[in-house]
Every structure is written in structure tokens, then in C-alpha cells.
Nucleic acid binder design. Structure first.
Lengths: 198, 198
DNA sequence: CCTCATGGTCAACGGCTGTTGAGTCACACG
DNA sequence: CGTGTGACTCAACAGCCGTTGACCATGAGG
């Protein structure tokens, strides 16, 4: 299934890496579309044009394949000059970039699709993505309830992401990126500006 | 497994309804905890103290059992005197009520847990819950982008719900209901008040 | 050119699942 | 007191899944 027709002119290592990449791409797509339980090793292998046993030889188990397919690259860290007022816009841009990037999009979708039903995806989203984002964000916005405010902000962002890219809720899925940002930014801004007194 | 020890003193119809209720309760709990794919008919039957075949006789299929276990009661409709300013608080209260009500809580959790991976749960959440809420809410808040604003509002609310009750994100899961409402309400308020001009 | 390591395939196993049809037992009814 | 209806159980089937071990072919190394 790999593109180049003269596959035989490739070194063994290249062939191996090509197979692995094809399997990984097919796995990401199916994990993202159908979820962990409904994607089968046989289905992934068939989409990648290889034998099911090869998938096992490369990744060891379906669990390990899922872990490899959903490993997220580190996010860019915010510069030291970031102020609380910048947080909403930056957070929105980061998330939309993640889910609209042609390459790497399926990784995020595969992780998100399974975050409610697959134990290791739940842990990855809760501990590796959300908690990290929340603690660094809380450090920037400061004030009382900083952690809780950051948590609510990220939860809202996650909800919009899920509705737009996973549920495909009509008004949100078809809205332009600019409209989403324009409406969401003031709402999240209300979360970072502490009201001091009631 | 039903409580009363003198089960033999019950009419046949009562026994039947008791079995059905026990199966439904066990199914809701397992669908909510483990998701559709990881719950088995055998497991539900065992938790309900009945034979697996009885589950089939009552509900016909696993799919039908899931549909019966996740059927949500209608939401209370908003009175005609509801103003846009009331929308955020009302929406928050409704959702928190749904997920904290002792009885009926598992129904909402079972539906939410599977809304990303089970086709009919996806449809139910998107079309039967979210779309209805959005259109009635859009009618109340009015203005430009009313539908989109309502969609973003409900998406945020859904995100907080997922983070709090499903992911159990530490700062949100352990926060008090009052704190969540206090922080979330102004953020959602920013979504219903149109900024008229840019 | 010979040889071995290695990427890749094939066929099969064991286990678990949803589902079914025959059979059992107690209760309601005439 | 028969008798049949309906709730309930038992055992089994068929299919799909992840996983494995034996096997093949081909390219690298001497």
C-alpha cells in the first residue's frame, strides 16, 4: 500500500519503518473514527496492507498499539512574558491547532474519542494533558481559586472541542474557526479575571 | 437479589417487574462505569441475580437493553417569563441536578459515558439532548449568532460535566457545587450577552 | 556465492461474546 | 384438583477477537 512502486529498491530498515508508519496511520484513523473496542487488529492490518501478525510483531499488543498511536507531542511552553489576559486566546489557539492540523490531527482525535471508555486514555487525558495544562495555567492567572478556574476553563475548552470534532454538533461543527474564537474568548476571559468580592 | 425475603408472596407480574427493574439498574451502573463494549450480558445478569437468557427475554438484545437503560426523562420546560439573564444559572442547575440526583444519575452517566464511542448514544446526545436545548435556548437569548452562542454554552457545560463526573478531574471533581456555579455562571453569561459591535 | 538474520505471511488456537431453543417449575385459573 | 401459561434456567452454538508458533523469502555480510 505504500506509495513508491519500486519498493524493492529500498533498504530493509526503510521497509520496516514504512510498514510501521502505515500501521500507525491506519490505527490512528480507526481508533479516532470507531473507538478502541470497535477497531480490530485485522481491520488495521487490512487498511495498512499488511498481515495482522505483523502488527503484533511491531507493537506487541493492541494496548501497546493504542499507546503508540495516541502518544502526543509536547505542547509549546508559554514564554515568561505571558500575562493572564493572553491566556484565553492562547489556550483556544493551541487546542484548535491541535485538532485542525492535517498531520497529528488523528492522534488527538484518537485520544479524545476514547477518553471516556478506555482506561489508559482516561488517565492520559486527565493526568498528562489536563492536569499539566491546569497547573501551568493556574500559575499564570494567579489569585484565589486559580487551580479551579483553570480547571473550569480547560473543561469548557474540552467541551467545545468534543462537540465540534467528535459529536459534530451542527452549529459548532460548521462554524468558522474565527466565530468560535470570537464567542469563546470573552467567556473564558470571565474565568481568568477574579471578581475579588461578591 | 431483590430485597423482600418472601418473594413467593408476590404476584407473577410483580416478580416480572422486579426482575426487569433489577436488570435495568445493574445495566445502567455497568454501562455508566465500564462503557457499552466492556459490559457483558452475563455480567449484568450476574449483578441482577438472574440468568443471562432472562435479559434477552426481557429486552431482546444488548442494543435494546442499552436503549432502555439510557432513556432520559424529559427536562422541565422553562416558563414563558424566562429572560436571557436567567439562562446561565438555570442551565447550570439543570445539568448539576441531573448528575447529582441519586435516582436517575446512572441514566445520565451511562448515556454520557458512551456518547463518544457508541453510535446510538452519540445520536441521542447530539440530536435528542443538545439540539433541543440549543434551539429553545437560542429562542430565549435571541440576537445575532443565537444558535451558535447557545451551542457554545451547552458545549462548555458538557465539558465541565464530563470533567467533573466522568474524567473526575481532581480540582473539579472535588469542588463544591456552589463553587462550580459561582465560577461558571459569569463565563456563560458572557455568551448570552451579545457584544453588538466589534 | 553461501549463509544467516530478519521482515513478512499463514493457519490455527483458546477464550469470550451475544444469542437461541429446549426444558423446568410454580403460580393462576377453571 | 388438574392444567396450561408464563417466568425462568440450562446447555449449547456460531462467530469474532487477540494472540502465537511454524514457516517463507529476501536482502545484508563475509
Amino acid at each position: 500500500m505504500p506509495g513508491s512502486p519500486d519498493v524493492h529498491r529500498l533498504t530493509r530498515d526503510d521497509r520496516r519503518q514504512r510498514s510501521e508508519a502505515a500501521i500507525l496511520a491506519a490505527a490512528r484513523q480507526q481508533f479516532a473514527d470507531a473507538g478502541f473496542e470497535r477497531t480490530t487488529i485485522r481491520g488495521v492490518a487490512s487498511a495498512a496492507g499488511v498481515d495482522p501478525a505483523l502488527v503484533m510483531q511491531h507493537f506487541g499488543s493492541k494496548e501497546a498499539l493504542f499507546a503508540a498511536a495516541t502518544r502526543m507531542p509536547d505542547e509549546p511552553v508559554w514564554g515568561p512574558g505571558t500575562s493572564a489576559a493572553d491566556v484565553p486566546r492562547l489556550a483556544i489557539e493551541e487546542v484548535l491547532d491541535r485538532f485542525e492540523d492535517e498531520e497529528g490531527r488523528d492522534t488527538a482525535l484518537a485520544l479524545a474519542r476514547n477518553c471516556l471508555t478506555h482506561p489508559s486514555a482516561t488517565t492520559a487525558v486527565r493526568d498528562d494533558v489536563m492536569c499539566d495544562r491546569i497547573s501551568t495555567m493556574a500559575g499564570v492567572i494567579g489569585g484565589d481559586d486559580a487551580e479551579l478556574r483553570a480547571a473550569v476553563l480547560n473543561a469548557c475548552l474540552m467541551g467545545v472541542t468534543i462537540a465540534r470534532y467528535l459529536l459534530e454538533l451542527p452549529p459548532l461543527a460548521s462554524a468558522s474557526r474565527e466565530d468560535v474564537t470570537r464567542l469563546l474568548e470573552p467567556a473564558l476571559a470571565a474565568l481568568v479575571t477574579a471578581p475579588d468580592a461578591d
